[in-house]
Design a binder for these strands. Structure first.
Lengths: 355, 355
DNA sequence: CCCATCGGGTAACGCGCGTTACCAATAGCG
DNA sequence: CGCTATTGGTAACGCGCGTTACCCGATGGG
């Protein structure tokens, strides 16, 4: 014996208009409403009742319940992204790119932090917790975004849904990833300096072991080789990836040579170091780009666009990588093949005034 | 007549272990599992079956379905935030603060952009769409975050759930909001300069009409008044809120006076302008803070922490505002009273090396 | 010995919706 | 005229779970 629903006598609810309400108001069955709202091709609903239903939807201000829809249809419209928001000056751009693309696809991006302060134990555990939480939400795909280009391990549970790595790559080499074309970026930067007529070019290097440094330098060498030149090891100085590091490295290079042998251009492997380089150059009474041209890397807007003169630099395509990550995920969840396991994204040259 | 469920004969599913599976595996009813998992006080379950159930959960790798749970319990664990991610250099910090706080509360933050590129028509319509989408997800509360302190209109539908404004305030004055204490920040900045012995202080002002400028200047006046001084209108110069604007405004002030009458300190109403001020000062062969002390506002990390010398500035507490927004929302959704309609958040002084 | 209580647990309903099976009334066809 | 399609729609099931009402056996008190 079915219990009587006490709500049955109150057809119009205060909050939360449901499909049933719409059906009653339009004098049709709930199924008809469902068919109209999900306007399926093979549904046989007369044009007249269709408009009657649509009117009812309008009048009642019906709003579908995404959760219930997900439950019934077993599809969720959600992707999850695990990232270190905290320590990320620009992980944010990845999120933005992914978010925007997801929004275009009428999907939501659930963000889970992998660097939460209340975490106990090593960071690994935290990523696990974040991943777990996202899977509880039944996300259809996962994105892992790193704040700098590197190799990572992802939690095992990530295997349960399609997963794409952004700005990092799988240490085990199994998952598809989206990374910047560091080498292409290094090449284009160096080519720009060559094109401006420079032949004696200093390089302010990062930690030589990280993928960014390796790729960018390789690209620089390629460009030089294309011009029949090669990189003078003496002109490559490494330092901390900060303004101070760049300042000191630049001082080293500038003070080592008499005016004649001094490089006429500097390729700084990131913008923060370029910022320090500016100071070192200006302190010595030299002008940019007159005496020394400077080119950076990363395009950290707040630095590059506000330095004086504005810094010519190579952009890291964070937004694009985020968007491409979502697109790749969409392809994977749709069962389509993806182009490549590792997709390189162009690092475009941004002309400003320092070359 | 009930249809037979074809899955019934296949108790162990590939994907998606449900409570029913756990119940079967533990030899109890699904209700018992539910009771144990939501460990309610008044449930009468023996310690033994409780552990048996927990074991089954472990063994099967059961993961609750958040969507179904939300549907059944009519509570959603989600807040929504509407913001302009695109144009936001630091809206991101608001998101981070809110995100972290939400995560601590075991809730998710759904982010909807209010500045999507594909939008047709005015921005208003876009915020509506974003809000609508969030309400479809049955968020329990809404946050609206602006990229700079200002007055806003929120979509009508926001009234359906608790709503809090961050870094902006309701033009109609009805919704609670979280904003920076601009006046307190202006006061603390000026007090710092006074404490360092300066009495002739220049002000590089923003557009004088925006809330930030009004509040900060007011605070500056208060500080001066506290020292028996008052603001010399001639030393207040407005400019565009950019490095170039700051450069030009600073040039004006510096070149207007002979060395004697020149201000010995500058209060720049934002860091970008301070960046330009640095250039103007250095160009004239003056040192910071030796000849001229500089204090900024906003604490844009990439600028303030990397300028040489590092910029002493007043921080805009974006993260804190984001967190407080979520806390306020939590109070509202729990039906608790909130402290005030408009909550001011401290803007703390960050000592670096430019004063 | 009978009834009330209590610990330990279960059956059943409903959340809002997608979806499949089915049904009534017409239209088409030979 | 009888038989099948077709049109227009509905009843009913299940998604996975929270929750309420209820049930059964073991006590315990009078």
């Amino acid at each position: 014996m079915a219990k009587t629903n006490p709500d049955e006598s109150v057809p119009v609810r205060q909050r939360g208009v449901t499909m049933k309400d719409v059906a009653n108001h339009a004098g049709v069955s709930r199924t008809a409403v469902s068919f109209v709202l999900s306007n399926r091709e093979n549904a046989s609903i007369s044009e007249e009742t269709r408009t009657r239903i649509n009117h009812a939807v309008q009048e009642l201000g019906y709003r579908p319940n995404a959760g219930a829809r997900a439950l019934a249809s077993r599809r969720s419209d959600w992707y999850g992204i695990v990232t270190e928001i905290v320590t990320a000056p620009f992980a944010v751009d990845i999120i933005k790119g992914a978010q925007d693309q997801a929004w275009l696809d009428r999907r939501f991006l659930l963000i889970a932090p992998s660097d939460q302060a209340d975490a106990v134990g090593p960071n690994e555990g935290l990523e696990d917790a974040a991943t777990e939480k996202l899977l509880e939400q039944r996300v259809e795909g996962l994105l892992y975004a790193a704040t700098f280009h590197r190799s990572v391990h992802v939690p095992k549970s990530a295997n349960e849904v399609p997963t794409v790595l952004i700005n990092c790559f799988d240490a085990d080499g199994k998952l598809p990833s989206i990374v910047p074309d560091e080498r292409g970026g290094g090449r284009v930067a160096m080519e720009r300096l060559l094109q401006a007529g420079h032949t004696r070019i200093g390089v302010i290097n990062l930690d030589p072991d990280i993928p960014a440094a390796v790729g960018r330098l390789e690209g620089a060498r390629e460009a030089l080789a294309g011009a029949g030149l090669q990189l003078d090891p003496e002109l490559v100085v490494s330092g901390y990836a900060t303004a101070d590091g760049g300042y000191e490295a630049t001082c080293q290079i500038l003070d080592r040579y008499p005016e004649a042998g001094r490089p006429t251009a500097l390729f700084c492997l990131n913008d923060r170091m370029a910022m320090g380089a500016y100071d070192a150059i200006k302190e010595r009474g030299l002008t940019i780009p007159g005496d020394i041209a400077v080119i950076g890397f990363d395009n950290q807007e707040l630095i590059a666009a506000y330095l004086r003169p504005k810094l010519t630099t190579v952009a890291l395509p964070f937004e694009k990588m985020g968007a491409l990550g979502v697109q790749t995920l969409a392809a994977l969840t749709a069962g389509q093949p993806i182009l490549a396991d590792q997709q390189l994204v162009d690092c475009p040259l941004l002309e400003r005034s320092s070359v």
